[in-house]
């Protein structure tokens, strides 16, 4: 009697376990393509947040290295995701400008008789001795065109639940063959980015410490970049003021205007 009851209970349990396993496998198979789509959707939503029709901002860049701290202030104009102009206003760099157009980066220095057009290896040079390279300013345009994305396990960054997305480059035109980004689940804004070399070495880390929300969009107001190839070095970017949707004259992003 006891044996019969036990056998029945055992069979029922076995059937339940098998059933659960089948369900798990079925759900996993169905969930795999869903995850890939989710990753793309997250990136799309995040990019919608970060790209604006036009924006004017003022901010500061604080570079820390083994010799101390250095602060530079700047004004910036941006249109869409391809055009931007940064003009430095701090005493040491007053009048220096960086113009980014769709494919090029130009540097203007008041004491130089010609504008410097950056190309090739020169794009890897540091922007004003910071942890940011000129190449970093050109990257990240249309991430989904350049990277294959995969959703990894969610993680908590600075107390906030985040999607973790692994991005592997599909072309050689990007500065980093692999990036891992953590996107805030609530804000749909980047919380942290790791940029890797082809060999898998961590080259740069970016952490966003504060955000500004304006016109329903949320974007970084304070972030820190660390070049992992330099020791004791980090650069903080702080946006003090930002105006979205401002009118910017067409010529602002032209070479002629740069030298004025």
């Amino acid at each position: 009697m006891y044996k019969t009851t036990y056998d029945h209970w055992s069979k029922t349990k076995t059937r339940r376990i098998v059933g659960l396993l089948i369900l798990t496998i079925l759900f996993s198979a169905a969930a795999a393509p869903l995850s890939a789509m989710d990753a793309e959707e997250i990136i799309q939503k995040m990019e919608e947040n970060q790209v604006h029709q036009s924006a004017y901002s003022e901010g500061r860049m604080i570079i820390r290295d083994r010799f101390g701290e250095k602060e530079s202030s700047f004004k910036s104009w941006a249109r869409g995701e391809d055009e931007s102009l940064i003009e430095f206003t701090s005493r040491q760099e007053r009048g220096q400008k960086i113009l980014r157009t769709e494919d090029e980066i130009y540097l203007y220095f008041p004491d130089a008789a010609e504008v410097i057009r950056l190309q090739g290896a020169a794009l890897r040079d540091s922007v004003l001795g910071s942890d940011l390279s000129y190449e970093d300013m050109t990257g990240d345009k249309g991430l989904l065109d350049s990277y294959e994305v995969e959703l990894l396990e969610d993680e908590v960054v600075d107390g906030q639940p985040c999607y973790q997305i692994d991005m592997r480059a599909v072309s050689r035109d990007v500065p980093y063959p692999r990036q891992v980004i953590w996107v805030d689940k609530e804000l749909f804004a980047t919380r942290k980015v790791h940029k890797y070399s082809l060999s898998g070495k961590l080259l740069k880390e970016m952490r966003i410490q504060d955000y500004i929300t304006q016109n329903g969009k949320t974007f970084p107001a304070r972030f820190v970049v660390e070049d992992k190839m330099k020791s004791n070095s980090s650069t903080s970017f702080i946006i003090d003021q930002i105006d979205l949707g401002v009118e910017i004259p067409e010529a602002t992003f032209s070479l002629q205007e740069l030298t004025w």
Binding site: I63, F67, S72, E93, Q96, D111, A112, E114, V127, G129
Partner: peptide, 9 residues
């Protein structure tokens, strides 16, 4: 010297 950048022709 201040670890910024500058250029001259």
């Amino acid at each position: 010297m201040g670890r910024g950048m500058n250029a001259i022709t």
